[in-house]
Design a protein around this nucleic acid. Structure first.
Lengths: 198, 198
DNA sequence: CCTACCGATCGGTAGG
DNA sequence: CCTACCGATCGGTAGG
């Protein structure tokens, strides 16, 4: 029983590692079996089908995002303070996600945006939740006067999502080790907040 | 001879259509053959190997980007005017790329950022060329006083790339039909240029 | 969790 | 450009 749970976890960890580099589609049962020195039936037996394994991998991704980005900031004062802390945690997570191929949420976002099916649906749902979190703090920040009253909240959300999602390609394609600082600087410009002192 | 050229083109077009939705890896010889009502050897015979077909598809992508984004603006006055026109063409191209699954350059960027091999290498090279174009106009705009002298050129490039690359997921995941306007609004904020009148 | 196996599909080749 | 075929790998199942 405990052993089966440990197996599940190790399979999911291997799947996440592989998916971060080559995408969720390249996570085949045979390759996982080889990585883990298991039989194919041992790998898939825990999940039933490859699609179920993919969906559980996506759940792992959202859980990691929540643990690394939202949980550390959620008790801060709602509005601009929490929003800025969330953006910083977000961008830093994207730069150091614990997977060899970069932030898996980013990977899945661009890989499954144009497809249909349960992974796409779950992705939309998860990202929408995060959009709602951002919107809440943006609206509070506007109402409280921390952001200008003319702020375009939807455009700001779009901008924050864009800037966080480019950390991985900037680092991996161009070796851009200042991606975190550049993303945060652009975020502050979009929010019309003065640059932080370093 | 002419017929062979026409076949090449139709294979590459089908490959680009398929890749835009499911990624370059899902472009298999068998699926292309089925789409085009050809034999597998007829499809691959024009290219030799699947990797060669992938690389030619990537070339098609860069050629389309050049034709739709750079060629229409390259004769405008260098500096801020050309930069803003390029950004507009860029974002509009991303929103209407002529492929069913969205901008293929964006797709390939996020799909191959973490992998090694010739597609990755070609991608880095192509994106670097575009970065250099952006940098040139940014520096001219700063030198001429159209942009503030303290402008962080590298952060601006990062921001423009990010915002252009999020058009596709914003549209496909959230049905965001204002992605173009939101991306352009954020670009102007990053550049510290007054919003355009509508 | 294993071995052994299934039909389908993969990239690619031989020969025409 | 075609048919016919190759070994490898795919997702998944039977039986234990």
């Amino acid at each position: 029983m405990q052993a089966a749970l440990a197996t599940r976890r190790s399979v999911l960890e291997a799947a996440a590692d592989l998916a971060s580099v080559e995408g969720l589609d390249s996570v085949t049962i045979g390759r996982l079996a080889e990585m883990l020195d298991m039989s194919k039936s041992g790998v898939i037996g825990q999940f039933g089908t490859k699609e179920a394994l993919q969906l559980e991998t996506v759940e792992l991704v959202f859980a990691a995002f929540r643990a690394r980005v939202w949980d550390p900031v959620k008790r801060l004062p709602p509005g601009l303070p929490r929003l800025l802390a969330a953006c910083e945690a977000w961008v830093k997570y994207a730069a150091d996600p614990g997977y060899p191929g970069g932030c898996l949420l980013t990977q899945v976002t661009y890989d499954y945006d144009a497809r249909s099916g349960p992974v796409h649906e779950r992705l939309v749902e998860g990202r929408q939740l995060w959009r709602d979190v951002l919107r809440t703090d943006l609206e509070i920040a506007v109402d409280s006067g921390d952001l200008p009253s003319g702020t375009d909240v939807r455009a700001a959300i779009y901008g924050l999502e864009s800037l966080a999602a480019f950390v991985t390609p900037a680092r991996l394609l161009h070796g851009d080790d200042r991606a975190v600082e550049q993303a945060l600087a652009c975020m502050r410009r979009i929010l019309d907040v003065a640059p932080a002192r370093s």
